[in-house]
């Protein structure tokens, strides 16, 4: 336990200052009635006590990003960040999702440079979830409100102080090199407080449902009539996909500045829930119905991704559960398939 340090919340500014000297810092910020990730320059801007309305994927995989600009036939690609990125205040679910996205974009046969240049050297500092919200179900996915997967440093909020624990070499390296941060040694009382917080958070979540067999179940469910039922109420909007920390489909668009020979090529989020997603230039659409589209989304997360990467592409952050306009709750969808067999 000697690895655990304590930082008074009042001294968070020192921690932030140390981060800022080496990193571009992103964290949850409240503005316009929403909590979203944004670049921050001081500890005051951070809002660490609740999860963000949007996931953290946009830091590394922005909804809109320029992948090249062109002018008079010459192209230019944007350069990477001047400093590596640090994220402070990400929740364990979102931190975990970054590992998944890295499997898609960063590792393996194909390497997406836009992703890698941001994520490769990033420092991920998560803060445990003291109060999981309605709709949270990370416990179904073998995570928990204090999971450390994907984090370099994990924080635990114990009231007026944070417990700081390194979870990777990178995290350890940063903490050891930052001697200007006034860390203290946690007392036994602090540690038991942390354990209490953790226990409270875990017990406040709804019971875990074992979904480890979901892939096998879905293997047999291609022709299930359940898809029709789900598609019946699904609106085919992109709320679930755009708020999802693991959805990663995108579209490429070219945009020209009117009256000039200048323009840019952008990559923007796209969603398999939209009919245009699969529409081909000929006009043919291999996934023309809502049923086929919702099947694609569920299958991609709980079946194909497992096939390719060996894990379910869901972290149970609950954003889709909370925001689906017709309450098409993914937990319910999964349960229905499990029950059907």
């Amino acid at each position: 336990m000697s690895d655990i340090l304590k930082l008074d919340k009042k001294r968070l500014d020192k921690f932030v200052a140390a981060l800022l000297s080496e990193y571009r810092l992103f964290g949850p910020v409240e503005a316009n009635g929403l909590t979203r990730f944004a670049e921050v320059e001081s500890a005051d801007a951070l809002k660490l006590d609740s999860n963000t309305d949007e996931s953290a994927k946009g830091i590394f995989f922005p909804q809109v990003e320029t992948i090249l600009t062109y002018e008079n036939g010459k192209t230019e690609t944007p350069s990477g960040p001047d400093k590596p990125i640090a994220v402070l205040g990400i929740r364990p679910c979102d931190a975990r999702s970054l590992l998944m996205l890295d499997k898609v974009f960063g590792t393996g046969k194909y390497n997406d440079s836009c992703w890698t240049r941001r994520y490769e050297n990033a420092l991920i500092i998560s803060v445990g979830c003291n109060t999981p919200r309605a709709g949270c179900f990370c416990n179904w996915l073998d995570l928990g409100p204090f999971s450390k997967q994907g984090s370099d440093i994990a924080l635990t909020d114990i009231g007026d102080a944070l417990l700081v624990e390194s979870c990777s070499e990178k995290g350890r390296g940063f903490l050891e090199s930052s001697d200007e941060i006034p860390f203290r040694k946690p007392t036994d009382d602090d540690l038991s407080k942390a354990a209490g917080v953790r226990e409270h958070a875990e017990s406040s979540m709804e019971d875990k449902v074992d979904i480890s067999s979901i892939k096998a179940v879905l293997d047999k469910s291609w022709d299930s009539s359940l898809w029709d039922e789900l598609a019946g109420k699904c609106l085919s909007c992109a709320v679930c996909a755009y708020l999802c920390p693991t959805c990663h489909c995108f579209d490429i668009q070219d945009e020209k500045m009117p009256g000039t020979s200048r323009g840019r090529r952008i990559r923007i989020w796209d969603t398999c829930m939209a009919p245009q997603f699969t529409k081909e230039a000929s006009g043919h659409n291999p996934r023309p119905t809502g049923k086929k589209r919702i099947r694609q989304r569920v299958m991609h997360k709980f079946n194909y991704f497992v096939d390719v990467f060996g894990e379910i592409a869901c972290v149970g952050c609950g954003r889709c559960v909370r925001s689906c306009p017709v309450n098409l709750d993914i937990r319910y969808v999964i349960k229905r398939f499990m029950d059907a067999g």
Partner: peptide, 11 residues
């Protein structure tokens, strides 16, 4: 008015 300059944070 449409401004085609990248609006996202440049990083």
């Amino acid at each position: 008015v449409r401004n085609l300059e990248p609006t996202e944070t440049k990083y």
